[in-house]
């Protein structure tokens, strides 16, 4: 065996071993069908909280009680100044090394939540709560994009109960939250009325994609939903 043959044999072996390792890595790391579902009691944490009923001022029937009814309150009907909305500017999950700028987003022409084009940005649904305000404050980011590779929420599937989430608002104030649940839903079964709950207790909801990737539709089959509650 001449030296040239020996060298090529070594190269071939190295290539083969490396290739096998990569293929095996891919195979073993493929998530099982229920990947992303976690021990956290997601269903209770994500469960819809009924909105507190807005009870209009009740006036007892005057004729029935025989006394003058209490007078009803009044307020100015003048056009109010536009409300001050403190939009979030950035979001941090130190445990997952997630630190991303936040943009206010709406819905696209299909009625789906807009996701910032840049995979490094996170979108805050502008019609959801300001973090810490009544209802859910919804953040969504790409798990990955074709252009930029892994997105800002790529690591979100490793979120664990207790992980801290810090949201910085545009006035510089910081709202702290702690993860309470992580759950995956088939996209068609995403409980949007729970995720986008209007009113009720303050809650942070972080959404990205997970599950199997459908190469044909170029999209994931599931949404990963992480919820967090205010701390302190």
């Amino acid at each position: 065996m001449n030296p040239s043959w020996r060298r090529e044999a070594v190269v071939a072996l190295a290539l083969a071993v490396t290739g096998l390792v990569l293929v095996l890595a891919w195979w073993s790391a493929r998530p099982p069908a229920d990947a992303g579902r976690v021990a956290a009691p997601a269903t209770t944490a994500v469960a819809a909280t009924p909105l507190p009923p807005t009870t209009p001022t009740a006036v007892e029937d005057p004729a029935a009680v025989g006394v003058p009814a209490p007078l009803v309150g009044t307020r100015s009907a003048a056009v109010p100044p536009p409300p001050v909305v403190l939009a979030p500017r950035s979001i941090d999950l130190p445990a997952l090394e997630i630190a991303a700028p936040v943009l206010a987003v709406g819905v696209d022409e299909d009625g789906l939540l807009e996701i910032p084009r840049d995979g490094d940005d996170i979108g805050w649904y502008r019609w959801s709560a300001v973090p810490g305000g009544p209802g859910t404050s919804v953040f969504a980011g790409h798990v990955d994009t074709v252009e930029d590779g892994p997105g800002a929420f790529f690591a979100l599937e490793r979120a664990a109960p207790g992980d801290r989430v810090a949201v910085t608002l545009e006035d510089g104030s910081v709202r702290e939250f702690a993860v309470t649940a992580r759950e995956s839903f088939p996209k068609q079964a995403l409980p949007v009325d729970t995720v986008f709950r209007r009113g009720g207790p303050p809650q942070l909801v972080l959404v990205t994609c997970s599950g199997r990737f459908d190469e044909r539709t170029r999209s994931y089959e599931e949404n990963l939903v992480v919820t967090a509650e205010p701390v302190g």
Binding site: V143, G151, L190, S219, N223
Partner: peptide
């Protein structure tokens, strides 16, 4: 919103 399309790669 009707859904959250947050991954493409």
């Amino acid at each position: 919103p009707g859904g959250v399309p947050s991954g493409e790669a």
